[in-house]
Design a protein around this nucleic acid. Structure first.
Length: 640
RNA sequence: GCCCACGUAACUCAGUAGGUAGAGUACUUCCUUGGUAAGGAAGAAGUCACCGGUUCGAAUCCGGUCGUGGGCUCCA
């Protein structure tokens, strides 16, 4: 009988008869201990089932359940188990669409006349538990497309037929699990006995193939682990994440509010949130001053004609609010600040000698968002951009972008964000400007990124209509990423507004414009900050840096004295001089996440000191007011 | 915008055989003056999101509107 050689990545090698099944070969190749945790294999680099038949010399690597690949396989298989449960419970006439693994679980899309309910969740989970206990095998068959089509025609699974039609290979894989046959690339677990900890999490609508013009399907989300304990800890972490939800903390800490009577997606900054925003803005302005930016202020509305000139009505119209009629002239709420900055540019003739002109503005813009897209501070209809526009010559471009990146990363660092994902987006389908301009701008962005030594991902076709862009997504402490910074080159607006400058040659030239926002939207950035710090802001940002707690009414005079002294020295301080017990006051200050509590009893009055309790429960020795102010000042130093 | 769920005092939530609303916290007043995470008592507080319908009668059933949540789509 013919033999083949199967080797492990580390070099061990053995001969086997042709047609040996992978898991049989593993018996000879690896220890029982390793084999026990093996759920799939990698054959010449490709993930395959443990039941794969091997026909030729190959390199084989066991895939263990404790790898991230193993987890993906488990979740994908769990999606199939859920589909089987749904079909068993609700009938095989239910249409199944797609069911992949996601970053933290899996989903499967179904098309069924009736909606699923939360009681259905329990039934489905119970059925899945049954299936898991029965250790149902996943059986893979490689069949011709024609065969697959006839199978799904017979089962009346239209979505699968559509999927097959788009597959180019002549053969496809069918996976059979009980009576459920699915079109699937695989690989899968050997059997359902591996399912030890899974849970259905939520139900949501999802368009077939993400197209809002097509059928809305019901998507069931769930997650799955090899160990029930891991599931439990995942669910616990979900609860913890909920605790730092900016919407909850925003309410508890009285930072911001969104109210029906005002309207959805419109943010009201409460005193504490406003103070925090002021701290952000002061810092932002100081940094921009250092980097030779000048500050602008512009209005919230402008004549509709200006938005025609800018091209926004054509290219951004669906995101703009309806026009308003003022004395028979049509006006629009601004969705962007750029045209106003151009208007300021136009106030006089410009020379290349003033370049680069760097104008920044904390500009509030209004954009129409579909109601379903709104989300706390993260997605709103009115928000303030930390915007800037730079007017320069083409030869300035690369350096300006480099400088922006530097300022950008510095500012983000001050807020504790040092992990990013960077994307370079190129020309979209709908665009203006010449191909040459696009290429020139894209090159400039690329070279700046490379000079700064930043790794980035190319995002083809995702640029804005007027130019290519760099987007920076920051990662918070929980590893979630948030789109904030954006740097966009624009060859278009200068042309539309026909702005120019006098060059060294005495002729008129068209400047290039760079749009950029670092924090993006103050609202969103605030939301990210709240979640990042779980509401326990660093001293330089905290709206209240210290709260004075007197022990009894006997210290009221001294409380007032300390309070006044600290205010005078610029410390953001509150006093809690209510007739309550110390424990009670400490608890409240703690819940409000105030960094420092200053406790004043008879001892402190006597020695003219304050006793400092930290947010973490520790105490500092008694000190004078001046000594405490030094601590606050030291802790408030940011960026060198 | 679309799918599903939800919308009860300032907050968190009870309130399913449909019979004109409850708790805890917060708030106000009083007692208490107590050193490191909730002292005690009393009181005030709700058009049960809004509009309409079914019913002798609706927070509870039905329809619509608005809003919120989880997704899809989209994005700062």
């Amino acid at each position: 009988m013919a033999e083949i050689s199967i080797s492990l990545p580390q070099g061990d090698k053995k001969n086997f008869p042709v047609g040996i099944v992978a898991h049989e070969a593993l018996k000879e190749l690896v220890s029982n201990k390793v084999r026990k945790n093996t759920i799939a294999v990698r054959l010449n680099g490709e993930l395959r089932d443990l039941s794969t038949v091997i026909q030729q010399d190959t390199e084989l690597e066991p895939v263990s359940s404790d790898t991230s690949e193993g987890l993906v396989i488990l979740r994908h298989s769990t999606a199939h188990v859920m589909a089987l449960a749904v079909l068993e419970l609700f009938g095989y006439e239910v249409q199944v669409a797609i069911g992949p693994a996601t970053d933290d679980g899996f989903y499967y899309d179904f098309d069924r006349g009736e909606p699923f309910s939360s009681e259905d969740f329990e039934k489905i989970e119970a059925k899945m538990t049954e299936i898991a206990a029965a250790r149902v095998p996943f059986v893979m068959k490689r069949v011709s497309k024609a065969k697959a089509i006839s199978v799904f025609k017979e089962k009346n699974q239209a979505y699968k037929l559509e999927l097959i039609a788009d597959i180019e290979d002549e053969e496809v894989n069918l996976y059979q699990l009980g009576d459920f046959v699915d079109l699937c690339r695989g690989p899968h677990l050997p059997d359902t006995g591996w399912l030890k900890g899974f849970k259905l999490l939520r139900l949501a609508g999802a368009y077939w193939r993400g197209d809002e013009n097509r059928q809305m399907l019901q998507r069931l989300y769930g997650t799955s682990f090899f160990d029930a304990k891991e599931l439990k800890s995942y669910l616990y972490n979900l609860e913890e994440a909920k605790k730092r939800d900016h919407r909850k903390l925003g309410k508890d800490l009285e930072l911001f509010t969104i109210q029906d009577q005002v309207g959805p997606g419109l943010i009201l900054w409460q005193p504490k949130g406003a103070l925090l925003r002021k701290n952000i803005e002061d810092f932002w302005k100081a940094e921009h001053y250092k980097h030779d930016y000048e500050l602008l202020y512009t209005p919230h509305i402008a004549r509709r004609d200006m938005w025609k000139t800018s091209g926004h009505l054509d290219f951004y119209g669906e995101n703009m609010f309806s026009p308003m009629d003022i004395d028979d002239v049509s006006y629009q709420l601004k969705p962007m600040n750029c045209p106003f900055h151009i208007a300021i540019y136009q106030t006089r003739k410009r020379s290349y000698r003033e370049f680069p002109i760097r104008w920044c503005e904390l500009g509030t813009v209004y954009r129409y968002e579909k109601t379903g897209a709104l989300h706390g501070l993260m997605r709103v209809r009115g928000f303030t951009q930390d915007d800037a526009h730079i007017f320069c010559r083409p030869d300035h471009l690369a350096e300006e972008i480099f400088n922006i990146l530097e300022l950008n990363l510095n500012i983000l660092k001050a807020f504790g964000f040092e992990d990013y994902d960077i994307y370079l987006s190129t020309r979209p389908e709908k665009y203006v400007g010449s191909d040459e301009h696009w290429q020139q701008a894209t090159e400039a962005l690329k070279s700046a990124l490379e000079k700064k030594g930043l790794a980035y991902e190319l995002d083809p076709g995702e640029g804005v209509f007027y130019g290519p862009k760099i987007d920076i997504k920051i990662k918070d402490v929980l590893g979630r990423s948030w789109q904030c910074s954006t740097i966009q080159v624009d060859f278009n607006l200068p042309e539309r507004f026909d702005i120019s400058y006098t060059g060294a040659d005495g002729n008129e030239h068209q400047p290039i414009m760079i749009h950029r926002a670092l924090m993006g939207s103050l609202e969103r950035f605030f939301g990210v900050l709240i979640e990042h710090y779980a509401g326990a802001f660093p001293v330089w940002l905290a709206p209240v840096q210290a709260r004075i707690l007197n022990i009894t009414d006997a210290q009221l005079d001294y409380t007032e004295e300390v309070y006044r002294a600290l205010r005078k020295l610029g410390v953001r301080v509150e006093k809690d001089d209510r007739n309550e017990k110390l424990n009670y006051k400490i608890r409240e200050a703690q819940v409000q996440k105030v960094p420092y509590m200053l406790i004043l009893g008879d001892k402190e009055v006597e020695s003219k000191t304050v006793t400092v309790r930290l947010r973490n429960g520790d105490n500092l020795p008694a000190m004078s007011v001046e000594e405490f102010v030094d601590i606050i000042r030291k802790e408030s130093e940011i960026l060198n």
